[in-house]
Design a protein around this nucleic acid. Sequence first.
DNA 1: CCGAATCCGCCTAGATACTG
DNA 2: CAGTATCTAGGCGGATTCGG
Lengths: 123, 123
Amino acid sequence: MSDAEDFSDGEPCSLREVLGLVGDKWTMQILVRLTDGPRRFSELEHGIEGISRRMLALTLRNLERNGLVTRTVYAEVPPRVEYAITPHAAELDEPLHALSAWASKHRAIVGEARRAYDATKAS
Amino acid sequence: MSDAEDFSDGEPCSLREVLGLVGDKWTMQILVRLTDGPRRFSELEHGIEGISRRMLALTLRNLERNGLVTRTVYAEVPPRVEYAITPHAAELDEPLHALSAWASKHRAIVGEARRAYDATKAS
DNA sequence: CCGAATCCGCCTAGATACTG
DNA sequence: CAGTATCTAGGCGGATTCGG
């Protein structure tokens, strides 16, 4: 199935690689939730606003495939499945927070830049 | 025109905001090139592997709109247009390098995780 | 040289319904 | 509860063409 970048080549642009892993619409939000501890499928489904069951499943599959999340099935009734972050993904926490901090700091400036730009273009 | 997130709401998830700004296919690569200094349109076009003229123009427009890049037109013949990074975007450099470092460190592990996962699924 | 406009194929997310 | 299967529409990106 799909596979944006291979992670098998030499040294292209590491940035794009990370983005290929966590840069999509839902991955980050899942990762953030899992930093607090393991979560069940339905916990994630209800906790993340607007995500569909399909996208949650697909995104979790990818995370699992890339070794960023582990999937544990408990043989119970009713069935229970827990997802947990791996140590590797946990190390993403700091860089991600740095990015988040940038957004918080520059949010107002970006908003103002947009208004200014749109105003001049409103011919 | 399009506008994923508004930057006008209270405090949703800053991460998604940054990703909305620089998380697409080309923005990062353009930004990285511009950290070395101002570049012309055609310099970027030829320097970035695989980008189309259309996508370069669109991506630059967005960067300009968000106040991350400035566009300067020189009244010459032939016409010359230079793009430069703004101080705000320059501050993205460090967080981005942190992400890049993560990718370099975990590249092998991710690759191995994928092979392992795909192997077990090759039923 | 720098872009805007148009056309168009592909991918992907969303909705919905079904299974273990 | 925790997924999978199928269908469809809309966005995105590439190619091409025209304008400043």
